[in-house]
Design a protein around this nucleic acid. Sequence first.
DNA 1: GCATATGGCTGCAAATTTGCAGGAAGCGCC
DNA 2: GGCGCTTCCTGCAAATTTGCAGCCATATGC
Lengths: 279, 279
Amino acid sequence: MNWDDLRIIAAVRDEGTYAGASARLRIDETTVGRRLARIQRDLGVPLFDAVDGLRRPTRQCEAVLEHVGAMAAHAAAIDRVKESEVGPVGRLRIASTNAVAEELLAPHASSFLRDHPGLTLQFLTSSGNVKFSRWQADLAIRLRKPEKGDFTISKLGEVRLYFFEPADRGGAEPVVCVYPDELDAIPEAQFLRAKRLTNVRCVTDNVRIIRTMIQSHQAIGVLPEHSCGSLLADRSLRATLLPRRRDVWLLVQNHLKRDPATRVTIDWVRACFKDLSHG
Amino acid sequence: MNWDDLRIIAAVRDEGTYAGASARLRIDETTVGRRLARIQRDLGVPLFDAVDGLRRPTRQCEAVLEHVGAMAAHAAAIDRVKESEVGPVGRLRIASTNAVAEELLAPHASSFLRDHPGLTLQFLTSSGNVKFSRWQADLAIRLRKPEKGDFTISKLGEVRLYFFEPADRGGAEPVVCVYPDELDAIPEAQFLRAKRLTNVRCVTDNVRIIRTMIQSHQAIGVLPEHSCGSLLADRSLRATLLPRRRDVWLLVQNHLKRDPATRVTIDWVRACFKDLSHG
DNA sequence: GCATATGGCTGCAAATTTGCAGGAAGCGCC
DNA sequence: GGCGCTTCCTGCAAATTTGCAGCCATATGC
């Protein structure tokens, strides 16, 4: 039994004719006749008598109509669920590095969430533990371009990188902060490896740690522009812009690429990165 | 919003995957995905998150599902309305002459109604007042073939006719019973007119009246075979079989010709007339 | 590492539904 | 009596939905 055909029964009862029901439901009168015939066959009982030019519900039809009325009330309530939300609705789980989340996304998050009251953002910053393929995140911001997978990938932007070293090299040899092996492909790691620095004593991908050590004027390292902040103005440090930038990639679950909430969130993430490129 | 799509939501929630819902509803997994996308667009809210390989209902979806559950209960009750009736169900209004109803149909009505507990017969025997075109009857048994109309017409059979006159013509001249002018076309009326009888003193289409007067052995008239009964064995009467029979026609409302209840009733009416032809 | 099973998406064809147009019938009004 | 309006049915074409096949990805077991 097709539940939607039940609405035909109610309309014919209310209007008394196929033509009246047709106007009410805004479907063709031929369609009303056919769908009524179909639900009548499905139910196996006659639903209307034809008397004096009008369709009159049978006893069985009256019994059916009591239930249809109740179903219509529930359908109306479902429609109100829809109306209770204005704008895109949803919860987006964004997997990214701490730095990206804290310094690129978080500063703009409040205004974005204010502008879209139906949205919720969840930042997954321990991204090593998130399996994108298992739908454990909706979006992922990656520093490496994954070769393939069940997702849609696009380039978010390019991040400028700065090499920091103490201005005064007279003191003790500064420690060198490098990125772990699995990040060998990123420009920062390649740059540092090419310089053949000694005293490599700190290995981490936590840029906050790297930034704190650089700020002590006793360490060497590379930071992305969004993590530099006031370090660029520190006269005890020498900042050198690297020739290469680092690509940043956005991954979107395939089943979400047309989802309205996802689309506005993607636009917002892109704007965050665009602000950076011009800042 | 298509009410039938709401069943898709419930099935995906229950099974956790499109494939599971597909098996449950016995529709293609592609169709599940498309119909879910459609109802999601109609409602304007996301219904499922994808987490750890499963679809999990969102907060709005849970709200919708409460209503869907209630609707499913009503749909089940509607299905039971159908199951409460065994066999064809309906009330058939049959327009016919008194004689046909009383003598051809009524004797067989009890067993027919016993065999079809879901049927009800309503005999409309003041058929002059019934407008078949206004759906005031479902079936009509007519002695004249109507030329046209919004109904399906078929021949029921041919009725044998008997001319009765008193065996002893020595007494007073018997009165002649004839049919009213509007029945001029029927063979009885034509036969009587052709005999150029005098003493035409009784005009009626009520064959019971005609029969009673013939039974008094003081009247002449023509009766259909189903109204003769014991008159044929009365030695004080001379019964002559007319050469012509009278056609009987069945009219069926067009919208009912495929209705199951109507079809079994038509078969029954035909059987009543067939019994007559061989009796 | 390979084979198998499962899930979901896309393109295309088949199936079904819907709308349109025409025709028939009845009713009311002039 | 003729005309206009309304209702409903039927045939056909257009539109939509559904199913199927192929493909891709992931997980599991051997």
